[in-house]
Design a binder for these strands. Structure first.
Lengths: 312, 312
DNA sequence: CCCGATAAGTTGACTGAAGCAACATAGTCA
DNA sequence: TGACTATGTTGCTTCAGTCAACTTATCGGG
């Protein structure tokens, strides 16, 4: 029995946000739209300024991108041309298409508008402390990611942990494993304790933690801890679903192996569970071998724990 | 030396999000705008449908709210009136102002549009698993909060923890204390370990944890743990800055006291540090007394630890 | 009780945004 | 070469929205 979407609190929350953000963007654009150029013209300038110089778009391309009527567009382009902001030159290979490029003056005008718009945003930010800005951009990145907006750069970076990262990794991992495998909160307790112990007994020479970041968001982690002088242990390998399929897991494990070799270890071991298949594949690819398995009951499930290891 | 706002990655991230969201909202509204009514008319219907029935707005009120030209508005209202969607009746106390109210038909039309819009949003959500929805609305709530949009209801609720909450609380608290007091990451390690130990040794009859939620976001927490049969210990009281000044800290502590009494404890104690002044005030107001202080070096600072306690 | 001031609302005239359709022109392919 | 298609231009129209002049109603003060 389908309930009305009006009853869904998530739907209500999103619509409320949409109203809020639409108003916000309206306010930000208000002053900018008081310029000599209409919104449509500014959008054209934006596209042209951001186009690849070796492949300038034609009027048709612009129409497709901006979803504008060809006739309307033609007039707008004429206006911009007679203002000296853009040049229409026949493409070398296809004389039917007119290549559109910004003139020097066009670039100046656009960068003026662009900077004004950036200033508006900057003044919005000026009242916020650095931590709040990070939260703001992080939340925005998350929304885009969740709604399938492909970020420009999907590269990840590995870095040392900063305060707050451990909690974040615990939070995400607990939420993820609860959702995917039905783990109960004892899992979150376990990883909290592991993380806390790691910090308390931290030996910088022989232990390390990496945080993976993509688009400003934490999307992965891994820890190397000392088991004994000869053996390092890899713990809490975590790869967020949004970052899967990009070799992040492999990169994290390889970073661990490299560090462990440099720190003088002879061997690396790790403990995992059989149901974590994607992790298993990473370990196999990184040269680990399954040593032994034992049944145990944890996190509300009957699981098969696995010990893996490899020489360095 | 002020750098150009174009250089600021936060500004760039926000502008990118703004473009993304504007496009998204445009796509969501596309079908709805294909209805018989223009955006301006729909906005009017929205305002009227959401107005307090005992204080129907006048044309002037609407103009102020919607930032519309009075003449334009007048025409739009005429159109809606002749379509039978709204009634203009003179206000009893001020005959100059015409009270605008939706007719039965107006309410029907609006709820049709409203539902169509909600359906669009619902179909956007339909592809997302429950966890992603929670993240989405959470991120949206955070943005609104950070940018100072006052939510309709600023009430908080206290609830039991769910998987992911512990990590979130650790994350937030570590970020907060790092920013406000310069604590290093050993603080995060400590609270992670405390949280983990709490879960491992959890005794449902005598221990408990509350998570405070406001607008769907976790904004506070507190733990009660057993010290011995007679004495309960309050730990990890955390109140997010955004929730301050609403009595959340007091509510959390009182919940603890109530629970501790019910669980048969005779006394409650807690440990804190002198620099956490806002926490101190909460403890004092809740009847705790400072028992002893000791100097210690932790989290990268010289601190004064305090033991507080009160009988139940 | 009336008169000016003012608030609320209406109407006419106008501008710019945007879409549609007919048309011109240049390339493409049989 | 001729039919066809892609690209762009122009004329016409509609609608959204603004401005200013105007009407009407209310209110306060003499």
């Amino acid at each position: 029995m389908p309930v009305s979407p009006l009853q869904d609190p998530d739907v209500a929350a999103i619509r409320q946000f949409n109203r809020f953000h639409t108003r916000l963007v309206g306010a930000l654009n208000e002053r900018m739209l008081a310029s000599d150029y209409s919104l449509a013209q500014v959008r054209i300038l934006y596209e042209l300024a951001n186009a690849r110089p070796d492949a300038p778009p034609s009027a048709r391309d612009l129409g497709d991108i901006l979803q504008m009527d060809a006739g309307y567009l033609s007039r707008l382009l004429s206006g911009l041309e007679s203002d000296g902001l853009l040049a229409r030159t026949p493409s070398p290979e296809n004389a039917k298409r007119l290549a559109l490029t910004l003139t020097e003056r066009g670039r100046e005008v656009f960068s003026g508008l662009n900077e004004a718009s950036a200033r508006e945003v900057a003044s919005l930010l000026s009242g916020l402390p650095a931590e709040a800005r990070g939260q703001l951009t992080g939340a925005m990145a998350r929304i885009r990611r969740l709604l399938g907006d492909t970020p420009d750069t999907r590269a990840f970076i590995l870095r040392d942990p900063r305060p707050g990262d451990l909690g974040w990794v615990i939070h995400r991992q607990a939420a993820l494993y609860t959702q995917e495998y039905g783990f109960d909160w004892t899992f979150e307790g376990l990883i909290s304790e592991i993380a806390g112990k790691f910090v308390r007994e931290f030996d910088p020479a022989r232990e390390r933690c990496w945080i993976a970041e993509m688009e400003g968001e934490v999307v992965g982690s891994v820890f190397v801890v000392r088991q004994d002088d000869e053996v390092a242990k890899l713990r809490m390998l975590y790869v967020d679903p949004v970052a899967r399929g990009r070799g992040l897991g492999r990169a994290l494990v390889e970073e661990c192996l490299r560090f462990a070799r440099g720190a003088g270890y002879r061997r690396m071991v790790l403990w995992t569970n059989d149901i974590l298949v994607s992790a298993r594949r990473i370990y196999e690819a990184a040269g680990f071998e399954l040593l032994e398995e034992e049944h145990h009951r944890s996190f509300g499930h009957d699981l098969v724990g696995q010990n893996w290891g490899r020489d360095l």
